[in-house]
């Protein structure tokens, strides 16, 4: 394993801590996140309710734990779809070039021409709103072009490198060359792209749910909760603050990891 740097350490620590809380939230929360009147209505943060309660008397900390879990899961699946499909497209276009390259990349350009939220909106309206799976699918498709672009450059550059030529002379097939000989060497650009993609996915999901085209009750994500919090901002400002804080920390932690990975890549190069 190569050297860790400060960014990477801090990012892994923060993200690890949040991930542990989120995993805990899947199994246990201090209160039932959907149960009403577990405490007084719009109660300020206290020892009993760390982030206070909302206008139904629900425990906000419990809701944030559950909501962060939903956001985390959506962002992770979105990036997984985008990275896997995008890398596949990037590998094919970058490695083979020619007509495949032209066709797929022009389609890619067309997708990139639309603002991502608008594109996701269109896809959602085609797939049907109100399902978290459709949100994941829509955002996943929106994320494919950026991954395709990043990996295409790497695959195109490595196609003509001597160790790849050698592998070809030794009789390695295209599949083996792509997956075994080139793919590991694209991690330097792919891993930072994944962290950036994850953050964009968190923010995109939050915006969509905030606009009411994301997850719907009884599911709750951080974005959905922010839109709830807006309506009671004067009564219970701690709702927005708690929810927003968790989004910020999540994005900040993963951003640090991305920065750390990029710096480590530059040191080696």
């Amino acid at each position: 394993m190569r050297r860790m740097n400060g960014y990477l350490k801090a990012g892994l620590l923060l993200t690890g801590f949040l991930a542990a809380l989120i995993i805990l939230g899947y199994f246990w929360t201090p209160y039932d996140p959907t149960a009403m009147a577990v405490g007084p209505k719009t109660d300020a943060p206290s020892l009993a309710h760390w982030m206070g309660t909302d206008n139904f008397g629900r425990d906000i900390f419990s809701r944030v734990l559950k909501g962060a879990g939903m956001t985390f899961a959506i962002a992770l699946s979105t990036v997984a779809i985008g990275a896997v499909c995008g890398t596949a497209v990037g590998a094919l276009t970058g490695y083979f070039g020619g007509v495949v390259d032209d066709a797929l990349m022009r389609f890619n350009d067309a997708l990139t021409a639309f603002p991502s939220i608008l594109l996701a909106l269109v896809i959602i309206s085609v797939l049907g709103p109100g399902s978290k799976y459709n949100v994941v699918l829509a955002l996943g498709i929106v994320f494919i072009p950026s991954f395709a672009r990043v990996t295409r450059t790497a695959f195109a550059a490595l196609r003509e490198v001597n160790y790849v030529k050698s592998a070809r002379l030794m009789g390695a097939g295209n599949g083996r060359i792509l997956a075994v000989h080139i793919l590991p060497n694209t991690m330097q650009v792919l891993l930072p792209a994944i962290t950036i993609g994850f953050n964009n996915a968190v923010l995109a999901e939050a915006s969509m749910s905030y606009l009411g085209i994301g997850v719907t009750p009884p599911d709750a994500s951080l974005g959905y909760m922010l839109s709830e919090a807006q309506s009671m901002f004067t009564l219970a400002p701690w709702y927005a603050v708690g929810t927003g804080l968790v989004i910020i920390l999540l994005v900040f932690g993963v951003g640090l990891i991305g920065e750390g990975l990029q710096r480590r890549g530059n040191e080696v190069a």
Binding site: V161, N162, Y163, K165, S166, A167, L169, M170, G171, H181, P184, N185, M187
Partner: peptide
């Protein structure tokens, strides 16, 4: 069968990932 090549630059002829 399977002629091979030795390249000038010994830096780019070995896969750095392995």
């Amino acid at each position: 069968r399977r002629p091979q090549m030795i390249f000038q630059d010994p830096y780019s002829s070995l896969n750095p990932a392995y």
